[in-house]
Every structure is written in structure tokens, then in C-alpha cells.
Amino acid sequence: MPHAAVAEVSTTSPTPGITYTISELAREFDLTTRAIRFYEDCGLLSPQRAGRNRIYTARDRTRLKLTLRGKRLGLTLSEVKELVDMYESPRDTQAQLKKFLTVLAMHRQQLEQQMADLHVTLDEVRTHEKEAKRLLNSP
């Protein structure tokens, strides 16, 4: 789903009983197993254990998908965790949506500032290019 919001996907297990290995998730999402373990250490994923093996549920898979979407939106992992946890809880949906809008507004402002900074930098580069070309063409 292109540029979908973090909150669009329910984190309830659509197909209970289906499980995944860390390698299967790594392949599916084009990640390293180390990255998946890092997300686990951050509290974003909580696989079950069978001896030394991790067993990921459909819920873990969905949380991983939402984590990657949040990263694409520019959210920090702590913001992603807060939002994903919020949508799993039975709390008031209005408060959840307001928090999500606040986070998105902050990131939009940051991106707009970065874009303005990039435009200024590009203008400076163009000016230097013109000046260098002028100097090359002058006798």
C-alpha cells in the first residue's frame, strides 16, 4: 500500500495460527535478521520462543509492517511503538487519532523545513555553477 498511514492496518491477527520464522520475515520485508532482532529489543515485536528459535505470529508480522511504514513516514521507533501500541489498546479512538495527527503534523513541518533548506541549497549550487561556467568561458 503506497504511503499508507501507520494506523490503517489493524494489528489483530487476521489468520490465527499462522506463524513465521525470523528468516521468512527477513525475506518478505527485505530486512536482515539483525534488524528484526533490533525491533524486538525495542519492544516492537514480541515473538514466542521454541527453545532458541523465535516464532512470530501474524500480529508480529503486522507490527513489523507498521514499523516499516512509520519509518518511511519519518517517525522515530519510539513514536512508531507508541502509535502501534495505542492502536492495539481498547482506549478511546478519538484520542488515538488526535495523537496520530499531532505526530504527523510535526513530521510534516520538519519535512517542509528540510524542503525549504534544500531549495536554498539548490539555488546556491546553481549560482556557483553559472559563475564557474562564466569563468571558464571568459578569456
Rank of each mutant, 00 (worst) to 15 (best):
Q113K: 14
D30L: 14
H3Q: 15
V84D: 03
V6D: 01
R61I: 11
L83K: 05
E24Y: 03
K133P: 00
V80W: 01
T33G: 04
T76P: 00
L136N: 07
A26E: 03
S23E: 05
P16E: 09
L83A: 10
G43V: 13
N53S: 09
R59K: 10
E131T: 15
K99G: 02
Y56Q: 02
T11M: 05
R72L: 14
V120F: 06
I18V: 15
E88Y: 02
M86P: 00
V6T: 06
R91V: 05
R34W: 01
T127Q: 14
I55E: 01
T93S: 03
T32M: 02
K98N: 12
A50S: 12
Q96N: 08
K133F: 10
F100V: 11
R91E: 04
K133N: 09
A5T: 10
L136F: 11
E28Q: 14
T19N: 06
K99V: 12
R52Y: 10
L25E: 03
S78C: 06
L104S: 03
R72S: 13
T33H: 00
T102L: 11
G70Q: 02
R134E: 14
E112R: 12
L122W: 09
R37I: 12
E8H: 07
T33P: 00
L118F: 11
L111T: 15
S23Y: 04
G51K: 07
R108H: 10
S78F: 07
M86W: 08
A58G: 10
A105Q: 15
Q113G: 06
F100I: 10
K65P: 01
P14N: 08
E79F: 06
L83M: 13
R49K: 15
T67C: 07
C42L: 14
L75S: 01
R61G: 07
L77W: 04
R27W: 05
T62Q: 07
L101V: 10
K65N: 13
D41Y: 05
Y87H: 04
V84H: 03
D30Y: 11
L66S: 06
R37A: 07
